[in-house]
Design a binder for these strands. Structure first.
Length: 760
DNA sequence: ATGTAGAGGGTTTTT
DNA sequence: CCCTCTACAT
């Protein structure tokens, strides 16, 4: 452990004050790049240093990654073995841990399953089918969202179903059955001994509310409560925190209202505004010195966020260099945008000796990654996409996990339906329907019906019964493995004996090979899990079982690359997943109206403000240089659409940006200034068809144009086609106009006619 | 019972 | 555009 002087020398004055102020309610407003994580880790380390036992400290984070990093840093800082006993984790994982310990109190078995979003939706689809509701009207995603929002607002299924206002509302929207679906959904979860993500919070809240003695136990245990990213907490999280901290009120929340970007999933930004009302003795610290970015970046971000009405005033400043201006780049198409970004990375990497991992490309929606990937691949720039299909969501991985789940909790119906006939063992749809029917008639879990298949032989049929019995026996064997063997041995045997390994091994296509490797990787994951657990002091006596692994893995998702990916790659990700990260060079692409800000946010100023905060997050990721691009045309749901530059671009400080128009290749256009005035003088760029045509004529069809032709354009006048790219209506012509020089023209939109066909 | 063609629908963000 | 679901054929 460091002595006090060196301990504090890494902190500025405010940071140090926030660290030392350990008693009573504290709110730390941490501007972007102001060393927030450092303050939290030092604060916990300080508590440990003062002799507070690790198990009395609970720190709630937003992602597993944040929790892990924090834990590691505290471990390094204090060099205390007991740092591993800290309760650091996501809301979901720590409350899952509590719920397991208190499972009896809520009538669940300790080995309950956690359903992920896919499981929840699949369950909903089954329910909709049984209720004979059209899933076009009751879209599973939408229904799930409603249920999720309700739970996050502490509304139970029964309350939902009986509330007259909600009923009236649902009725008027043509979805009167939502309450019924919600109730049935909860009932099914319970019957499967399963909880969805929201239940982990929801049930914790009600456990504490209904069992004061249990709440008391945890209140007494956690003398110090810390919450990271407080601006993104929702109503349940808020309420649980209040419950937990009620005894000592040693509660410290850290956040930045300017970075609240999760209201769509129930986050309540007001939580951070109301904290001082909730705890009148609150001491507030504002971390305002930015250590991350250049003056140009910090000031642009400040100017931007000032536009928001709802916010806590703060003054973020930096001692860093002025830095380069922010470059705003216009391209003709999304493909050109990709090419420009790739080219720019290529050049900077060379000129400034940067590595790939110094670069990040941020976008609003995942599907924007494609054009970028293509362009990066062409220049052989290695990249890594964050988000997208996570390892644990891949089909084959979920299949094997379903076997694990079923072995540990045979009531888990989603796991059961998933694998009862995979690999195929001749159990068909009719059989499944019959089982499902019998189960519901008897109000029993499907597994119980399977286990007693013989008694229902008259409905199920004898050949099907035989197959079912074989399946049941297999799962029972797996259950025995899971109980008796170590996690890794059980995992290996289940993988083999389920037939999954064989199934994917026999598929020699590239995808099949990939899948087989993924299964192996999952099994390796079990091995890693066993080994890391051996190091942990709590568990040294008992070897980990498969059920321990499963608990861990249910809440592990995409962002949890185990840091082993040290390969030097450019990062591609959504702005949301970039929160908390920083990169020397950042490209924010797709800065267009209806994309960023997104289409559905346009109607409501509160949602626009959230989009602006999202943009603020994007801007503040950059350390050295920041680029923003927008395209004039973009492929969206299959066809080419015209785009307008984002309103957010006009909100930047124009002293701190430079404009660049890319056309006719990747060279910088000397029309920079012209482009800039074009942008800034008009609130919205005029659509092409509004421009006054100079020439009036009946245009020719796109197909007739050929390289070398002399043509007349309705606005640009006479010119010659130098080059044609693409074909049909998507073709783009490079034309040398007599009056305005070279331009790239989309034939689809162009009003042109042939003047003369000149031979080559 | 399994595979394929064709249609239809969805694109915000995640524990 | 891409993915998923359904309907039909084998």
């Amino acid at each position: 452990m460091l002595d006090e002087v060196s301990f504090f020398k890494e902190l500025n004055e405010v940071q140090r004050a926030a660290v030392e102020h350990t008693e009573g309610p504290v709110m730390i407003i941490a501007g972007a790049g102001s060393g927030k994580t450092r303050v939290i880790t030092y604060r916990i380390a300080w508590l440990l240093k003062k002799g507070v036992p690790a198990w009395q400290i609970i720190a709630l984070t937003f992602t597993n990654k944040a929790a892990r990093e924090m834990q590691e840093r505290i471990g390094k800082l204090t060099l205390l073995e007991q740092a591993k006993a800290l309760w650091i984790g996501t809301f979901h994982s720590l409350f899952a841990r509590i719920l397991r310990a208190e499972a009896d109190a809520i009538g669940f078995p300790k080995n309950f399953t956690i359903y992920d979003t896919e499981d929840s939706r699949s369950l909903l689809r089954n329910i909709l089918k049984e209720l004979h509701l059209e899933d076009k009207k009751y879209r599973p995603n939408h229904v799930h969202h409603i249920i999720s929002i309700s739970k996050n607002s502490l509304i139970t299924a029964d309350e939902y179903a009986s509330d007259p206002d909600i009923q009236a509302d649902d009725y008027s929207r043509g979805l009167p059955m939502l309450g019924k679906i919600f109730q049935l959904y909860q009932k099914r979860l319970e019957k499967s001994a399963a909880m969805d993500f929201d239940d982990l919070l929801f049930k914790t809240y009600f456990l504490f509310k209904e069992r004061p003695e249990i709440l008391y136990k945890y209140q007494t245990q956690f003398r110090y409560v810390m919450v990271d990213e407080y601006q993104d907490t929702n109503a349940v999280q808020y309420s649980i925190i209040r419950q937990l901290a009620a005894m000592y009120e040693n509660i410290c929340v850290v956040g930045d209202d300017a970075q609240s970007i999760y209201s769509f999933r129930g986050a309540v930004i007001e939580n951070i505004f109301n904290f001082q009302k909730d705890y009148p003795d609150t001491v507030m610290f504002k971390l305002e010195q930015n250590y991350r970015s250049t003056v140009n970046i910090v000031e642009s971000a400040n100017k931007l966020i000032e536009k928001n009405k709802i916010r806590i005033k703060k003054n973020v400043w930096t001692e860093n260099k002025e830095g380069d201006k922010i470059q705003v780049v216009q391209t003709l198409s999304d493909h050109e945008e990709g090419r420009w970004v790739a080219q720019s990375i290529f050049e900077i990497r060379m000129n400034e000796r940067a590595s790939n991992s110094d670069f990040a490309v941020l976008y609003r929606t995942n599907n924007q990654s494609r054009a970028l990937e293509e362009a990066l691949r062409k220049l052989n720039i290695p990249y890594k996409i964050y988000g997208g299909l996570s390892f644990y969501q891949r089909k084959e991985v979920k299949d094997l996990l379903a076997y694990f789940r079923l072995a540990i909790n045979p009531r888990d119906e989603e796991a059961l339906w998933r694998i009862i006939n995979f690999p195929s063992r001749g159990i068909g749809q009719t059989t499944l329907e019959r089982i499902s029917l019998i189960a519901h008639e008897n109000d029993a879990p499907a597994w119980d019906v399977l286990a007693k298949a013989k008694s229902f032989v008259s409905t199920i049929g004898s050949s099907a019964v035989a197959k079912l019995e074989e399946f049941v026996l297999k799962i029972q064997t797996f259950t025995a493995y899971a109980e008796k063997l170590s996690a890794i041995d059980a995992a290996r045997r289940i993988a083999m004996e389920s037939g999954l390994m064989r199934e994917f091994y026999s598929d020699r296509s590239p995808e099949g090979i990939m899948r087989y490797q993924n299964l192996e990787e999952l099994i390796n994951g079990v091995k890693d899990f066993l080994e890391t657990r051996k190091e942990s002091p709590d568990f040294q006596n008992q070897p980990a079982k498969l059920s321990d692994f499963l608990m861990e893995v249910a809440l592990l998702t995409d962002a949890d690359e185990k840091g082993k990916d040290s390969a030097d790659r450019v990062s591609l990700m959504t702005v949301h997943s970039a929160k908390g990260l920083e990169f020397p060079y950042v490209y924010v692409v797709g800065m267009e109206e209806t994309l960023f800000p997104s289409q559905q946010s346009l109607a409501d100023y509160r949602e626009i403000e959230e989009e602006r905060r999202l943009f603020y997050v994007a801007v503040t990721r950059a350390m050295k240089r920041l680029f923003m691009t927008y395209a004039r045309t973009r492929f969206r749901w299959g066809n080419l659409v015209h785009c307008e530059p984002s309103r957010f671009l006009f909100e930047l400080d124009d002293q701190r940006i430079t404009m660049l128009g890319v056309s006719g290749g990747l060279a910088a256009s000397e029309k920079g200034l012209k482009e800039k005035s074009f942008l800034l003088n008009r609130k919205k760029a005029e659509p092409l068809h509004n421009a006054t045509p100079k020439y009036d004529f009946v245009p020719d069809k796109p197909e007739v144009f050929k390289t070398g032709m002399n043509i007349v354009h309705n606005r640009f006048g006479p010119g010659k086609i130098l080059q044609l790219e693409g074909s049909g209506s998507e073709a783009i012509a490079l034309i040398e106009f007599e009056e305005v020089g070279q331009k790239k023209i989309l034939l689809k939109f162009a009003k042109m006619k042939v003047q003369s066909e000149e031979p080559f």
